[in-house]
Design a protein around this nucleic acid. Structure first.
Length: 604
RNA sequence: GGGGCCGUAGUUAAGUUGGUCAUAACGCCGGCCUGUCACGCCGGAGGGCGCGGGUUCGAGUCCCGUCGGCCCCGCCA
């Protein structure tokens, strides 16, 4: 009896005959042995119903006092999440008692023998399909959270996708080769996680932000095609789609150009989405150049599931009497706008919200126009001529009932502001169709960007990306005009992967380092082994890396990648379950020659 | 580094202008119940409102600070 000490029986040679979720009408009449967790007990005093759960699903077990009083008595003591084994016969449920909600709802198990393998303390929260429990609590008891079938299905699907990736890439000649986790810090890019070396006092390993250099070295070594499903580490602030450790599907190929990589990877993504969500994608996927993507959608990761594209009105309002527009244009800026169909009825509050969005992305303010029965309703209407108004309406395809939103300023600012407003409006107006997967390659990224804070050029992709052949002479003269052989794959407005053709000659690599303000000495110190390797017969090569977590999040319609990672971290990069990170013993610190320096506030 | 939202029983939440407001549902415990699957019915236990100050005769309710969570900007080659 449970009340007099816990009853915990041994398996005693019992073998499971199938998973709970796998029994069905086909087995009616046959004997089964099932093992799993008690999802729910419905005790009628006489009949007792137990929903028995394992990773494949739930089946109803019936305990009847007339079929073994001892077994029935034991069933009475069962509680949620007790671990049990049941022997019995599969039977068709009596007419009218079928449960269409359950996959196994046509049948039930008539229990003859029961073993209570383990009990369970009362739960901190219920194991339910859909949970509204606070995420911290769920993460603290992640093993319970993961028992929820909805979460198990996501983790299981992730496994299937990984298996599919390995299968596809192996079939296409890619070799799975492991690269070091303890590696060398490369100051370009994200902040590194550092690991002190006990055997080299004062020196540190870094956890890889990606296996970038190693996979290039593998190409130099002649492996021709490499892949790895690999953990990467970046010590930056977290987001819903960013974890400090995340998983990449990483691949590299030799003797290829951009189109070759893209083509093989379209096959991979198609295989993965067939496996994952059962849809047949139709490669080749649409492509946009970076210039076109930012011009039409405002961002380099365009969500192409809906329209609401940006239009340039600069030429129309070039001689405008509206000072804000005129001033911006005089300074070389642009005036762009979007037209939200049917949004003329937006309230003052709606417009305030949109203005707030615009300002948060760098706008000075937000000019708007409602096209109503009375014509232009807008704070700026009086500054614009009829001719200008007509031109704006024509360019935007605006009609009565529409709302027009304007951004004036630097091209990049105007694009960003309208691009983000577009996304906000897309959600607000429910323009985004559910269940669609729109893939777009974005190509011809700029090689360099200018970092105002650091007063130097930085690589938009990474320092090993090759420039486009026709732009190579611009590196010295007009670096910001140089386009790279880089490509991102965007799915529903989310960057799910990116890659490039790499520089495979040491002279071009040195030139690019020069451009990035990395001195010869610095380059030698940081990437010396790569520069050295490039000298010894490096084949042309390129590759790509996909964010597996993001792909899985989209496939499973999850709001956060935390839902597709078995053990994710909180926004402060902690693990509520293991309570990592934590302090360590002084002895451990001494061994690695580390001393903790307290923050000023703590000293006092 | 910054902005926003949140923190009341195991869980999810309600708590008016500060004064029986500590409340509900689910869960849990006990009892009854042979067709339930949000089982039903009866009874019961359980928190002092994230933490620390302050204002007040009196504070989940106001103020300050702090910790934690989530979303976002910066950051993330």
């Amino acid at each position: 009896m449970i009340t007099e000490g816990i009853l915990r029986e041994k398996l005693g040679g019992w073998k499971r005959s199938s998973y709970c979720g796998e029994v069905g009408s086909a087995q009616i009449g046959s004997q089964v042995t099932l093992m799993g967790w008690v999802q729910k007990r419905r005790d009628h005093g006489g009949l007792i119903f137990i929903d028995l759960r394992d990773r494949e699903g739930i089946v109803q077990v019936v305990f009847n006092p007339e079929k073994g009083a001892g077994t029935h008595e034991k069933a009475h003591s069962l509680r949620s999440e007790f671990v049990i084994a049941v022997k019995g016969a599969i039977g068709k449920r009596p007419a009218g008692t079928e449960n269409p909600e359950l996959k196994t709802g046509a049948i039930e198990v008539y229990a003859e023998e029961l073993k209570v393998l383990n009990d369970s303390a009362p739960l901190p929260f219920m194991i339910e399909e859909e949970s509204d429990v606070a995420e911290t609590t769920r993460l603290k008891y992640r093993y319970l959270d993961l028992r929820r079938l909805s979460l198990q299905r996501k983790i299981i699907l992730r496994h299937k996708v990984s298996a599919c990736v390995r299968n596809y890439l192996a079939q296409h000649g890619f070799l799975e080769i492991e690269t070091p986790v303890l590696t060398k810090s490369t100051p370009e890019g994200a902040r590194d996680f550092l690991v002190p070396s006990r055997l080299s006092p004062g020196q540190f390993f870094a956890l890889p932000q990606s296996p970038q250099i190693f996979k290039q070295i593998l190409m130099i070594a002649g492996f021709d095609r490499y892949y790895q499903i690999v953990r990467c580490f970046r010590d930056e602030d977290l987001r819903a789609d960013r974890q400090p450790e995340f998983t990449q599907i990483d691949a590299e190929m030799s003797f290829v150009e951009s189109d070759d990589v893209i083509s093989v990877m379209e096959g991979l993504i198609s295989a993965v989405f067939k496996e994952g969500v059962g849809i047949e994608l139709q490669p080749p996927f649409p492509r946009l150049t970076y210039a076109e993507a930012t011009s039409r959608f405002g961002v380099d990761n365009p969500d192409t599931r809906f329209g609401l594209e940006l239009k340039d009105l600069s030429s129309i309002v070039a001689k405008s009497g509206f000072k804000v527009f005129a001033d911006v244009l005089a300074k070389g800026g642009v005036v762009k706008a979007i037209c939200a169909k049917g949004a003329a009825e937006f309230s003052r509050k709606d417009l305030d919200d949109l203005t707030e969005v615009a300002v948060s992305f760098g706008a000075k303010g937000l000019a708007w126009v409602k096209l109503t029965d009375e014509g232009w309703q807008s704070p700026i209407a009086k500054f614009l001529s009829d001719e200008e108004k007509a031109g704006i309406e024509k360019t935007l395809g605006a009609v009565k009932g529409d709302l027009l939103l304007f951004a004036a300023g630097k091209l990049s600012t105007a694009n960003t502001v309208l691009g983000r407003l577009r996304l906000n409006l897309g959600a607000r107006l429910r323009l985004v169709p559910a269940g669609t997967f729109n893939f777009t390659w974005v190509t011809e990224f700029p090689m360099f960007d200018y970092d105002e804070a650091e007063k130097r050029h930085v690589a938009v992709h990474h320092p090993f990306t090759a420039p486009m052949d026709e732009d190579i002479d611009l590196i010295d003269t007009a670096p910001l005009k140089v386009r790279a052989k880089a490509y991102d794959l965007v799915l529903n407005g989310v960057e799910i992967g990116g890659g490039s053709i790499r520089i495979h000659t040491s002279d071009v690599q040195s030139l690019v380092f020069d451009m990035l303000g990395i001195s010869r000495e610095d380059a030698e110190l940081r990437f010396g082994f790569l520069l050295e390797a490039l000298k010894y017969g490096t084949p042309p090569h390129g590759g790509i890396a996909f964010g597996l977590d993001r792909i899985m999040a989209i496939m499973t319609a999850s709001d956060s990648i935390r839902d597709v990672i078995a053990f994710p971290k909180t926004q402060k990069a902690t693990c509520p379950m293991s309570e990592a990170p934590s302090t360590v013993d002084m002895k451990q610190l001494e061994e690695i020659f580390i001393r903790i320096v307290k923050k000023q506030a703590e000293k006092e």
